[in-house]
Design a protein around this nucleic acid. Structure first.
Length: 286
DNA sequence: ACCCAGGCGGGCG
DNA sequence: CGCCCGCATGGG
């Protein structure tokens, strides 16, 4: 078991706020930790106060595991800086105070893309179920044994393993009309080798490229950029965010998606993604 | 029975 | 542009 000291971090809020880890991993019963697969390794994380303990089963070595934990849970983010920038009004101050320590997780881009393609016009509970069934059906099985420890788990399905299924196969797991989009994105992802070039592009250009995929619109593209590529300026606008922004900042008057993007960009700028996540989690749990 | 869910594509004015 | 519609599915 390895560990590190953490500040301004709350793993419970982080893993319960409907980020990819919510869909992929399994929350521990005490809600203070999670298990999830990272590549071909199985990772356990557990928080006790300011101590974050973690371990991996598989090929992930000690140094790489520590880097994975820091990256995955956004532990490199300066939360003082973030809170100063987003906590500028009563509503956001309340959201921040309620969920202090919640971080934007940084996830594998393909895994992020598939999760959020599935998320469209869907509920958090169902998204999780569908993702779990896909992992069970198409994930590669790994078994780890050392001494008395023996465990088996399935990694996240590869783009190829989704692309080669029929829409009927995918619908059998409850994916519904999204099956077509899942195949389309999986096909592109396997052909274009993971969209790694997006890291070198600016936000607008990267978003436009993601939106050229069938089944990826404005909101899903922002989710992929935020949770998959760590673009903290991305501001995904779903039904919750739209409602809340209109209610809190526009006196309940309807606004177009474009206007809300302009508002968020001007108000929260480089940390709009954090503003969005606190707003989303807060609004959903009211 | 009914409504809605971390939307998107397509068609229309 | 903005608006409206259909879309699979199941949980509340």
């Amino acid at each position: 078991m390895q560990s590190m000291r953490v500040g301004d971090f709350d793993i419970t809020h982080t893993i319960e706020s409907a980020q990819p880890l919510t869909f992929i991993g399994d929350e521990r019963p005490d809600r203070k930790g999670i298990t999830y697969t990272c590549g071909d390794s199985f990772v356990e994380v557990d928080q006790r106060g300011k101590r974050l303990a973690y371990r991996a089963y598989g090929s992930l070595g000690r140094a790489r595991l520590s880097r994975e934990i820091i990256a995955r849970f956004g532990l490199g983010d300066d939360m003082g800086d973030v809170y100063r920038r987003i906590g500028t009004d009563a509503f956001m101050k309340k959201a921040v105070s309620r969920y202090r320590g919640m971080r934007i997780t940084r996830n594998e881009p393909w895994e992020t893309a598939l999760c959020f393609v599935i998320s469209q016009f869907n509920s958090v509970k169902r998204i999780r179920g569908i993702v779990k069934r896909l992992i069970a059906a198409y994930g590669r099985e790994h078994t780890f044994s050392a001494g008395s420890v023996r465990l088996s788990f399935r990694s996240f399905p590869s783009p190829e393993s989704i692309a080669e299924r029929s829409t009927g196969d995918l619908m059998a797991h409850g994916a519904g009309f999204r099956a077509r989009y899942m195949r389309a994105v999986a096909r592109e992802w396997s052909e274009q080798r993971g969209f790694s070039k997006l890291r070198d592009k600016d936000y607008a250009e990267a978003k436009e490229e993601l939106m050229s995929l069938e089944g990826v619109g404005d909101k899903v593209a922002d989710c992929i950029l935020l949770f998959g590529y760590g673009r903290l300026e991305a501001f995904p606008i779903d039904t919750w965010i739209k409602r809340v922004v209109e209610r809190v900042y526009f006196r309940g008057r309807k606004q177009s998606i474009r206007k809300i993007h302009e508002f968020a960009d001007e108000r929260w700028g480089a940390y709009a993604g954090y503003a969005q996540q606190y707003m989303f989690h807060f609004a959903r749990n009211e």
